[in-house]
Design a protein around this nucleic acid. Structure first.
Length: 579
RNA sequence: CGGGGCGUGGCUCAGUUUGGCUAGAGCGCUUGGUUCGGGACCAAGAGGUCGGUGGUUCAAAUCCACUCGCCCCGACCA
């Protein structure tokens, strides 16, 4: 392509709306423009990169035996009512009413559509396994879209759904996707980390998340330095803390007046103690049952873990009225003493059980209790009392004895073993050899296409702009004639452009009538991996200069040898990102 | 949704506190000229209902009310 004929609106200044590097460069390099919060128009360069990512994903999905189809984005709400997810997804789902007053949703994902397709078409074990996928826009009404392509309201997702008859077969389908994902991210030139993940809203039994480690990421990865363990924060399992030593005799619990002092920080300041010396008591509503959860003051309850302990029910914080009813006090003064008898279950985090003593709410408005000893002043076991791991990992925790570390990451893909959650509800059954009906065992597998683009920029950039991995670069080579008015320069540049293009290389010829400096700046900003500079002086000497975007220096190359040299360079860069 | 910030030519911003003359700068754009290997220079130009609505006032970008949009932080913290 000729640069002069392409729509590549680069900008010098950092856009005010963009906070993180990838978002800034996406706009500066002319890849995309915002339409409204969380929606973007991808311009020629951005779309070329997205298409390259899509091509890689498609190739690897096909190679892994999945088949591409095209399902609608517009889906009947009725389908979502059947699985109950119209409630679970809640406000995140865009809903539209059609002219017949029927509700539809703009699909945030497509388990329901694919499962109901399977329900209609799959009858026999002989049709299994089957894995169908699509690459389509998805819509999520995020509470807060942000960071450009990292969290947007409309994005492109590859979603695949596998249907199997046996757990072994499901595992095979799952691992085929797992392996395909490894190849996809490797081919996109990304460094990635695979972590164990929670299944969350999706349901099911097992999941891995593919994460690009970068400070801009919204996810937290918990891992051990020896590489033995990696999980996301929601999932990360940690060892119980050692029991704190008890120094001397601890006096009986004592109520102290703490007027209007409810929060952990305020109580600590008031009573001159530390959050880790406090016991937080949170009251949850678990499907109508009132449940108390105890964690140390400096820890956070992990709702996913708590829900697991409670048998996978849906939980949310209890409302003020329920809290008052259960504790007899205003919000902010809940405590464990005597609470087990007033709630249907009390779940105590390991770290609380390990405390020698702590400060708690007194179940009396404006009062807290000191010298509360777990096990002495409130039970650590009983019919409705359990000690479990129900909090998020924190610095200082260990997993199987190895200290855990934390880093941020961008989630670019996730694979799930769903089991029969959807097939049961939507009747996706098959008959086995004996003629008995069974629900299909399902898996689902997603990749965020736009997030790959953002991650790549986040990972590979410098002060001058993007440094694309060649596999997803909008062009592989840019030819930059420096003196647009010199006939020899123009001729050499044009010849090179034609020769390379004919050889199947994707070349951008910067034929704009601009000063060299401007062309160099733009070439760096848009991040084309290989630049061939054609200048008056070197052409007189019979040379052009070949330079990698990722390196500082260029190499003089005889004009006649240039095409071969560039082709070799392209191939060697491509070899680096081959899976 | 809670908190904070912002909205002024295409872009980045000043001006708003303390109302007052024709609303400014840099970048970008157009034309002419000089330049021409890392975002050139000179000259001349075009381009703005100051997010919107309503109000206060002799007078509003500036003060007040409402509203829309955008960005950031948070959203289980007892």
């Amino acid at each position: 392509m000729r640069y002069s004929q392409m729509f590549i609106p680069t900008v010098k200044e950092v856009p005010a709306e963009a906070e993180i590097t990838s978002h800034q460069l996406m706009i500066r390099a002319g890849l995309a423009r915002k339409v409204a919060s969380g929606t973007y128009t991808y311009l020629p360069l951005g779309w070329r990169t997205l298409k390259k990512i899509i091509d890689i994903v498609r190739e690897e999905m096909n190679r892994a035996g999945a088949q591409e189809i095209m399902a609608p984005c517009l889906q009947p709400l009725d389908l979502w009512d059947q699985t109950g997810r119209s409630v679970d997804y809640g406000a995140t789902m865009f809903r539209v009413k059609d002219r017949h007053e029927r509700w539809n949703v703009l699909g945030p994902t497509a388990e329901e559509v694919f499962t109901s397709l399977a329900a209609g078409e799959i009858n026999s074990y002989k049709q299994l396994p089957v894995n169908l996928y699509q690459i389509t826009p998805k819509f999520r009404d995020e509470f807060r879209p942000r960071f450009g392509a990292l969290r947007s309201r409309e994005f492109i997702m590859k979603d695949a759904y596998s249907f199997d008859a046996t757990p072994e077969s499901l595992h095979k389908s799952y691992m085929a996707m797992y392996d395909a994902y490894c190849r996809v991210f490797a081919r996109c030139g990304l460094e990635y980390v695979i972590v164990e993940a929670e299944t969350g809203e999706m349901g099911g039994s097992g999941s891995h998340q593919f994460t690009i480690p970068t400070a801009a990421g919204e996810d937290t990865i918990v891992f051990t330095a020896d590489g033995s363990y990696a999980a996301n924060l929601e999932k990360a399992e940690i060892d119980p803390l050692p029991k704190e030593p008890v120094k001397g005799e601890i006096p009986a619990p004592e109520n102290v007046e703490t007027p209007n002092v409810g929060s952990i920080e305020a109580v600590c300041a008031f009573l001159k103690t530390k959050p880790k010396r406090m016991i937080k008591t949170l009251i949850f509503d678990a499907g109508g049952q009132i449940v108390a959860a105890l964690v140390r003051g400096d820890h956070d309850v992990n709702p996913e873990k708590l829900a697991q302990v409670l048998g996978g029910v849906h939980i949310e914080l209890a409302n003020e009225e329920s809290i008052r009813k259960a504790t007899g006090a205003n919000v902010g003064f809940a405590g464990p003493i005597g609470l087990a008898d007033r709630v249907s279950k009390m779940v105590i985090d390991h770290a609380v059980a390990a405390m020698a003593l702590g400060v708690t709410g007194a179940n009396k408005t404006d009062y807290h209790t000191r010298n509360v000893v777990p096990g002495r002043d409130f039970p650590l076991e009983g019919v409705n009392v359990v000690v479990a791991d129900v909090r998020f990992a924190a610095p200082g925790d260990t997993h199987k004895g190895v200290p855990v570390q934390f880093k941020r990451g961008i989630e670019v893909g996730q694979v799930f073993k769903l089991g029969t959650k959807y097939s049961k509800k939507l009747g996706a059954n098959y008959k086995d050899e004996a003629g008995e009906l069974h629900p299909c065992l399902m898996g689902c597998y997603g990749i965020g296409i736009n997030r790959i683009l953002a991650s790549a920029i986040e990972l590979y950039n410098d002060e001058n702009g993007i440094i694309w991995p060649i596999s997803i670069a909008p062009f592989e080579v840019i030819v930059t004639p420096v003196n647009q008015d010199d006939p020899d320069v123009v001729r050499v540049a044009n010849d090179l452009y034609r020769t390379l293009t004919d050889a199947g290389i994707e070349v951008l010829l910067d034929d704009r009538d601009l000063r060299g400096g401007v062309k160099f700046k733009d070439a760096d900003l848009i991040g084309i991996p290989i630049r061939v500079t054609v200048g008056k002086k070197s052409v007189v000497e019979g040379n052009v200069e070949v330079k990698l975007r990722s390196e500082k220096d260029s190499t003089k190359t005889p004009i006649a040898e240039a095409p071969q040299k560039v082709i070799e360079l392209v191939n060697s860069l491509k070899a680096r990102v081959k899976a």
